[in-house]
């Protein structure tokens, strides 16, 4: 749900302000790639109606956001291109190499799955770098990043629960990557809570 809220907050920001300033196109493109490569199992495995709908929502919303930031006549003008310079190709390349080395099974689908898990763990980096560079974080962008990080933190609680309640719980690729992913938010969370406590605007040190 916090993942859904983060997407809604981002769409709201873009729709209401007709601006994507403060948002990293590179992070958004990485998420689109993450969901497209992870949900290849849409065609092979059925888990539940909820699961299928969520997969379609995550694919559609990530593509829609990338389309908006690249193609929308008004929105694309507010994109902070000069601040969004993270070399995201290295993240893609590194995740691909790691997926070829560390995976659950040597099949196309499993390698893409592992790739998407590794890439998702790192995909927030261009966004965090952009926020750090711009210093001031507008309210909706701050909420967006907070909910995006919160959703991964909740996953960790869920894994602890599943570890104790399920017979065979072994998903160390997802767990280790998820912990790394959440750890990357630690700095952001710290400043988010400080600003919340002081009832002040969110500011990141440069």
């Amino acid at each position: 749900m916090t993942h859904l809220i983060s997407i809604l907050v981002l769409l709201l920001k873009i729709y209401a302000t007709k601006s994507c300033s403060g948002i990293s196109l590179k992070t958004q493109e990485l998420y689109a790639l993450v969901f497209l490569t992870r949900y290849l199992d849409l065609f092979t495995d059925f888990i539940s109606v909820y699961n299928t709908i969520m997969k379609l929502v995550f694919i559609a919303s990530s593509l829609a956001i990338v389309w908006c930031m690249r193609m929308h006549r008004v929105v694309k003008r507010s994109y902070d291109k000069n601040l969004d310079t993270f070399r995201h190709y290295f993240l893609i390349l590194g995740s691909l190499v790691l997926a070829l080395l560390v995976h659950e099974k040597f099949t196309i689908q499993e390698i893409f799955w592992a790739f998407s898990i590794y890439l998702e763990a790192l995909a927030i980096l261009p966004q965090l770098v952009l926020l750090q560079r711009s210093g001031n974080v507008d309210n909706l962008t701050g909420q967006y990043v907070f909910f995006l990080g919160a959703y991964r933190a909740f996953y960790i609680l869920n894994w602890i629960y599943r570890y104790f309640t399920e017979q065979r719980f072994s998903r160390w690729i997802a767990c280790v990557s998820g912990i790394v992913q959440t750890a990357l938010y630690a700095d952001f969370f710290y400043y988010y809570f400080i600003s919340w406590k002081n009832n002040a605007k969110l500011q990141l040190p440069s």
Binding site: H3, R38, D41, D45, I47, N51, K55, F58, E104, A174
Partner: peptide
């Protein structure tokens, strides 16, 4: 059991 493992998380 050798039940096929699926990725049930999003």
């Amino acid at each position: 059991s050798s039940e096929e493992k699926v990725h049930d998380e999003l």
